[in-house]
């Protein structure tokens, strides 16, 4: 009974703080994952670009790739909690005064970006060579091929991995409490600091984290299914002009959405 009373006590006294913390956690994880994906797509795409055959451009590409490789290795190879301290206090040391949110988003984004870069590179490598050749054969440049043909397919293939990263971020942003970011775990720490109800608060915190990750899983599955496209298609009877225009109408609607 004591346990339930303690839980209820925490909820009535600090409930809104937990919710704010959970909201901050979700928002940080979401923004960090989105920016991380953008970084990952940029870096991964550069890494998967074949080297030009000649001279200056080749050297330049090599240097750029080397730098990006270094970025990936450094941020994949060090703990995010240390990166948070390194970046946040590093900026203070250099005389900047970054907002907590700025540091938090920066750390989560570049950390996620490092993992996503490799994921995207893998996603690009998983696309059949024939897709590249088909695009080349109708005169597409490398960039046109990537944007129109390869990356949309790579994106679809790596959605499960993007979901993974998001769920990891929901949990791992807990380390941002080290720079006093007010995420869910920070709330837990400050609450137990005043009432010593370590276990009940931990149960509540666990439950909130699990709820967030489970809901995320469901939403990610839904997104994945949506990206897979229609399982069926309409046959357009071309002798019948009405049916034909309705087919084109659907195609036009799709274009308009883009």
């Amino acid at each position: 009974m004591k346990f339930i009373n303690d839980i209820l006590k925490i909820i009535t006294e600090y409930g809104s703080s937990y919710l704010t913390g959970a909201g901050n956690t979700l928002l940080l994880a979401l923004i960090g994952t989105v920016i991380g994906c953008i970084i990952g797509f940029a870096v991964g795409t550069v890494q998967a670009t074949p080297l030009p055959e000649k001279g200056g451009k080749r050297v330049l590409m090599r240097i750029v790739r080397g730098i990006l490789r270094g970025y990936v290795e450094i941020f994949r190879g060090t703990p995010m909690i240390v990166q948070a301290v390194f970046i946040h206090y590093g900026m203070f040391y250099m005389g900047l005064k970054p907002a907590i949110w700025f540091s938090g988003i920066l750390v989560v984004s570049i950390n996620t970006g490092a993992y996503m870069a490799e994921t995207v590179r893998g996603g690009i490598m998983s696309i059949d060579q024939g897709q590249f050749e088909g695009a080349k054969a109708i005169g597409m440049t490398h960039n046109q091929t990537m944007i129109n043909v390869i990356l949309p397919q790579a994106l679809r293939n790596i959605i499960p991995q993007i979901g993974n990263n998001f769920i990891i971020n929901v949990k791992d942003t807990a380390v941002m409490s080290i720079i006093a970011f007010m995420d869910l775990f920070s709330i837990h720490k400050s609450v137990v600091g005043s009432n010593y109800l370590y276990f009940p608060s931990a149960v509540l915190t666990m439950a909130i984290y699990l709820t967030m990750t489970l809901v995320s899983s469901v939403l990610l599955r839904w997104w994945e299914d949506k990206m897979a496209g229609d399982a069926n298609y309409d046959i357009v009877n071309t002798k019948d002009t009405l049916a034909q225009t309705s087919g084109l109408y659907r195609a036009k609607k799709k274009e308009a959405k883009r």
């Binding site: 088909g134 695009a135 397919q153 298609y233 799709k254």
Partner: peptide
């Protein structure tokens, strides 16, 4: 091509 190489992410049109 022998293996068609249609773009899998697009409709026929």
């Amino acid at each position: 091509f022998q293996s068609f190489n249609l773009f899998n992410n697009m409709t026929v049109l």
